[in-house]
Design a protein around this nucleic acid. Structure first.
Length: 304
DNA sequence: CGTTTTACCTGGTGGC
DNA sequence: TGCCACCAGGTAAAAC
């Protein structure tokens, strides 16, 4: 459920609540939440200071201050030189992951997986995840131009809201694919941050059927699709994200309300906001695709 | 090698 | 009331 806008809401919350704070304790309550570096996480985090909160697509990470490198530069240091993180705490929320700021004495959540306490005695950072598709790990940073990213996500493409995203290169790669447009939109190594909800909404705005073969898309059509992706994500961000139930929330446990603005997703048999035709639901990759039969006619050469 | 399918996981829902 | 099939779906790994 959490896609780019929802993860960005969480990132902004983390930036204001944990940047500059030092981790005093880390407790893992479910091994699956840290499966990519089992058992080591607490030792890797204790005593580290969080520098900021970053995001690419649906991944977010907290760069960690490297005290050893700081010592090497000398205690006096160069005040003009900002600390460079060699490692970061990387997070993916999966289907149901939440990063919450909670008072340390508050009762433990039913699906609490990881709990971080801070030296200032302020709110904990708690990772709560019902379906355990999400996970946390400490990973080295890889310095790539134009930005540094954690090593495990070097295969994740730039997302359409970051300046590193290259529209022309995206169009070139897309047209070389032999697959359906929705499959391509969901491929995080081609464009990141798009999930089932915003794929359906962007395709509706661009009047494209989800099974349209990528190699038949003109460059102007791709440009319109990218505009639709950016538009729907920006609007959702302005409304705090989308949520259908209490599974997706910001760091304070509050839900966004973009679900009221969805045109087709989850609206089977309801009228298309543009033409009034009943929205259809079609099976797609063992899940669902919602579209308007009139605005998004099925192409003859559909590629499911 | 590029593309497609499957496994992972829990809670809510609807049928019987 | 219980039991079960089914649905939600992002990602990595396996299969094709």
């Amino acid at each position: 459920m959490p896609e780019l806008p929802e993860v960005e809401v969480v990132r902004r919350g983390l930036a204001s609540w944990v940047a500059g704070r030092t981790i005093a304790s880390a407790e893992v309550l479910h091994p699956r939440a840290v499966r990519r570096n089992a058992g080591e996480l607490p030792d890797q985090l204790k005593g580290r200071t969080i520098l900021s909160a970053e995001r690419r697509g649906k991944y977010l990470w907290l760069p960690l201050h490297d005290s050893a490198a700081d010592d090497a530069r000398g205690v006096s240091g160069d005040a003009a030189e900002p600390p460079v993180a060699a490692e970061a705490l990387l997070a993916h929320l999966g289907m149901s992951g939440q990063l919450l700021m909670v008072e340390p004495l508050a009762p433990l959540e039913k699906h609490l997986r990881v709990r971080l306490g801070f030296t200032d005695g302020g709110p904990d950072l708690r990772f709560v995840d019902q379906r355990t598709f999400g996970h946390l790990l400490v990973a080295p940073m890889v310095h790539m131009s134009p930005r540094s990213v954690p090593e495990p996500i070097t295969h994740i493409a730039a997302d359409p809201l970051e300046s590193a995203f290259d529209d022309a290169e995206f169009a070139n790669r897309l047209r070389r694919r032999h697959t359906g447009i929705k499959r391509a939109l969901l491929d995080q190594s081609l464009i990141s941050g798009v999930g089932n909800i915003y794929a359906d909404e962007a395709l509706w705005r661009a009047r494209l059927h989800w099974a349209r073969p990528t190699e038949t898309l003109s460059r102007p059509a791709i440009a319109e699709l990218l505009s639709a992706v950016r538009e729907v994500m920006s609007e959702a961000l302005g409304q705090g994200g989308t949520s259908f139930d209490s599974l997706y929330v910001n760091v304070n446990g509050e839900s966004g309300y973009f679900d009221r603005s969805l045109a087709v997703y989850g609206r089977r048999d309801e009228p298309c906001p543009r033409c009034g035709t009943a929205v259809r639901r079609e099976a797609f990759m063992n899940r669902s695709s919602y579209s308007c039969p009139k605005c998004q006619p099925t192409p003859r050469n559909a590629r499911p």
